[in-house]
Design a protein around this nucleic acid. Structure first.
Lengths: 218, 218
DNA sequence: AGCATAAATAATAA
DNA sequence: TTATTATTTATGCT
């Protein structure tokens, strides 16, 4: 983004990559942070050179990489995948392993052209395949990615882990405890009755909204 | 809702956003949790009804809302905007105020049809306008959104070993210091208060992830 | 190039 | 809605 020229100059070799939407404004920022830190220049820097110059370094089409990186992120998000998932999935497949950091840096173009050039086709192929599986349903995508098909999301709590465990076991038995039961659970866990009541409330709400399971069916 | 999740290797469940293709698979989920808890049904539930039934409730086209919500998220991300930014921007404009939570719930369809119906046109109009400004350059978008043109990510703090030691000793005594205590610790260590607050935050997270020990229990 | 973890964003208990 | 927790992203190291 636009902070590149400002921050990069004042801060050490931190590369701030342009946001997806910045592509169009790149030309309006003729000035560029000088690359004088003695390290290899990153794609995010090189690609921002005046557009008159076909952005390329060592025969690598930087503009293309940038375009892909921008697109990759959007497509990844469209699939609902995280950088972590992509990295783990890539690591699981044959070929080099990639960490979440690597994906992050690719998307931000905080990477050398050479590395980017190497990683791009890998990501491209993987993403296309992921999209293919997604076409057939999310189950397939998740299987491809390597995660469990559909586990229920763990939810935020201000209860102790022990308390959560107990609460859940009660919930499994009965998602809609009576006032009497709530009072007893609250006493057992030594929590406010109201707190427990609200916990069940929220618990039902969330489950209702995130699963097809009949919460209330006995 | 159509949300599914998988368990990442880290053992923390990861949420997968609704898939584009899920729209088509909605019909494959004929069963639906009965809504009998005396609360208003949410769009995410209602929209999952068998497609033979034109998803509508009180004359509201739920399928349309769902489609929009899915799309809204992708368009928002394409603009590089956060839920927080959208909420704040909407609040800044005339009309009702919306929090980050509200945007979050709309995207997840954890909202009643009536509310969704009311919010949809507001978001639609706002997003279209945002995209329009983005066309003219990110500066314009950021101006429209109301945030600073280029909010820089805070530089990652590195704590000295001494500071870490002190922080840990405080943490052992109390993992959940009050605002007052945080302020004092920050002053003692000569770090930003916010930095210290976040440190405790992350420290709690880490401990939670690495042990089942009750961090908070006295 | 990747781990550890700080910072940021999304989700949710209250 | 607000205040926090849960999750994800980004980055200091070397």
């Amino acid at each position: 983004s636009t902070q590149a020229s400002v921050t990069a100059a004042t801060q050490s070799p931190v590369v701030i990559a342009p946001q997806p939407s910045m592509l169009k404004t790149a030309a309006t920022h003729p000035s560029m942070a000088p690359i004088n830190c003695g390290e290899l220049a990153k794609v995010g820097q090189l690609v921002s050179k005046p557009q008159q110059t076909a952005s390329s370094e060592e025969g690598i089409n930087l503009e293309e990489i940038r375009e892909f990186a921008k697109n990759f992120k959007i497509r990844r998000l469209s699939l609902g995948l995280t950088q972590t998932q992509v990295g783990q999935a890539l690591t699981a497949t044959e070929g080099p392993a990639y960490s979440q950091s690597a994906i992050c840096r690719f998307e931000k173009l905080d990477i050398t052209p050479k590395s980017a050039q190497k990683l791009k086709p890998v990501l491209e192929k993987w993403l296309a395949e992921a999209e293919h599986w997604n076409q057939k349903g999310q189950q397939n995508l998740m299987e491809f990615v390597g995660g469990e098909p559909s586990k229920k999301r763990k939810r935020r709590t201000s209860f102790t882990p022990q308390a959560i465990e107990v609460l859940n076991s009660y919930f499994e038995k009965n998602a809609l405890p009576t006032g009497q039961e709530i009072t007893e659970i609250a006493r057992e866990l030594n929590y406010d009755r109201e707190v427990v009541r609200v916990w069940f409330c929220n618990r039902r709400q969330t489950l209702k909204n995130t699963s097809k399971i009949n919460v209330f069916q006995v």
